[in-house]
Nucleic acid binder design. Structure first.
Lengths: 201, 201, 201, 201
DNA sequence: GGCTAACCGAGACGGTACGTCCTGTCTTGAG
DNA sequence: CTCAAGACAGGACGTACCGTCTCGGTTAGCC
């Protein structure tokens, strides 16, 4: 990123190098995408040695993931509107918005791709990215059950996979648009069968 | 592959080369996966020149897709049991079985990855692989609606994305198991909300 | 050397690459010397791939030797004046002249250096460079003996080592000047003890 | 050589570091030779920081030379037998013995190589190593002249170059054996022409 | 039935990037 | 304040493939 030329306002050389590398990586992901991003070019732009990169990130995928996390994290928070369906509707809209950025799509694809042959990367991705979201989703669902909006006897994991799987499917595989109409319809249809079995009587 | 040394029982040299290449590609996809598969190695194993491969397949992705298609195609047909849900249940079980083969997983990931930067590959994949399945699924749904098993006013595309998206999500992204319990639950939950609204009484 | 841009007057691509590489190597030996010469830079200047260089020359030393041979060969021929001493005097003057070129000194040092750990290079150097000169020297000596200029019972090899060893010593080790005064004195002194003992009468 | 773990019997840390470094360098010169010796490895074995090495020795050549000097110095003294020829015969035998040690050969070659581009190293080598020997040789020659064993009107420098040049030539360049037969013949032949011309009668 | 044009295998070519290694400088923390 | 330890920028190494390009040696039409 080379925000400025090597400053030193109490920042260690190591730390400065780290953020310069992540910045350069993010920049390159934008410009040429994950597949064409090169460790050599990252090093050159960051003014860093290649060894410094390899010392911290074993593969291009791990580096790209770290570069991506910084910006994806705060972009799609879970709201709490008082309605499960509304919460999911808003969250999926936000996720779709993030996914529509080309850099995110390329990076996600690349990370997913490399994870096939790199269990550590897969674990990192699942634990640092997917699980936190899954946990947040679970909390929202719990709230809905507690409020009696939806029934309790269903598989949360399957619901999560339905919702986010559909999103990823369009993003990575089919290339169909990720717009509000789609996410809203998706949420509506997924929750259709989860209304409380209010006919207990 | 390379069943025997160059035979010639009425098979043109071209044709023999083509199948030798596809065979070598399939073999390599099994042994080292898509990412580590090399055009050079495919050519060497097939006893073919590299130029012969490049003449027919512009990228590794297209070659891998062709090599994969040969065996995936007949593997997961849609049944017609008389029940929509049962039809989907059986089909998703079959798809899951196929997806559990490592070669398929690696190849799908690779093709999806390359498709990000190769619209032709994405189109080929969608049209030759996804769309036929989508059409078959649509036909099954139509049958179900006609039989009154499910209501008509919902988005088939979204349903398809929910079902197959969840499958791909576990396959490519989260790595969770693709077993019968999951696919059955998935089908059940997805169709839960699609029962005919006609039983208001 | 890139005499011109890729011509093709009946010269194969291989052959053209070979001479371009040797030319670039010679140029670099002149400019920066053997130690700072880089395979990468040779490749860049020759417009050749590094692999093409490594395919033909296993080490920098072998490449430098080939580049050096082309010009050193014809520069110091053995004359035939009718006098052994005169023949050697002239030849050593010529050798000294060649050795005074910085490129030659650097390259010889580099080749000798690498040969310490590369027996193939040492053999190549001895057989392609030293032995031919040794054979020529031997022939001159034989002529001198036949003419009765020098006695026969001495070790030619030792004489050769004395003469050329002294030359290399100043060239590589002590750095003292290689001028005509030195070579003439050297030849005179070395042949002093070789006069025929037969004229006691 | 890391005789023991950090002792401190009145030896300053500096001094201890210095000898540990020289010891490690000598060890490595034996094991892998000059070309493959690395400052990093020397530092690691000596338990010293790289900076400590760079502070004292500007190049690998100077370090190697210091490491070599310690053991080569006392190995080949000039004797005083009463006969010039015998003195040189014994001394050259001793030198040949030293030169036959692989470490010495590698180190000399390395030092000579680096000296091509490092005048300070060349000066250090000439002044600390060559000149003392040259002076000793000159003294022996003077004794011989005084005793009337050899004539006075010849170039001592050329004689020295003949003798030691032949030795270095075989050592560094041609690889021929450095045995007693060679050195004895060399001395004999070189002094053949230096007998006093005083018996003209 | 011979000629020629297309296509084949083999593999060298110019390149690009890899991941490793070492250099010489600079930073940090322990003694 | 000096040192070991080692991270840092830089850059060459030798390797592996890329996609293109000769190069001869079969085919397989087309005369």
């Amino acid at each position: 990123m080379a925000a400025t030329d090597r400053p030193n306002p109490g920042v260690s050389r190591s730390e400065w190098a780290r953020s310069a590398i992540l910045g350069a990586a993010a920049q390159l992901l934008d410009e040429v995408g994950f597949a064409s991003m090169t460790i050599e070019e990252v090093a050159a732009r960051a003014g860093a040695g290649k060894a410094t990169i390899y010392r911290r990130w074993p593969t291009k995928g791990t580096l790209a993931m770290d570069a991506m996390m910084a910006e994806i994290d705060p972009a799609a928070p879970f709201p709490d509107t008082g309605s499960v369906i509304e919460d999911f509707r808003l969250q999926l809209r936000a996720v779709a918005r993030v996914f529509n950025r080309p850099r995110i799509r390329h990076t996600l694809t690349g990370v997913v791709f490399e994870a096939q042959n790199d269990p550590r990367l897969r674990n990192a991705f699942v634990e640092r990215y997917m699980n936190p979201r899954r946990d947040q989703a679970r909390a929202v669902i719990k709230r809905g059950i507690a409020r009696g909006e939806i029934r309790a006897n269903f598989d949360e994991g399957v619901l999560f996979d339905q919702l986010y799987g559909a999103l990823y499917f369009r993003l990575l595989v089919s290339g169909q648009p990720l717009n509000r109409r789609f996410t809203d319809e998706l949420v509506g249809q997924a929750f259709e069968g989860l209304r409380p079995a209010s006919k207990p009587g």
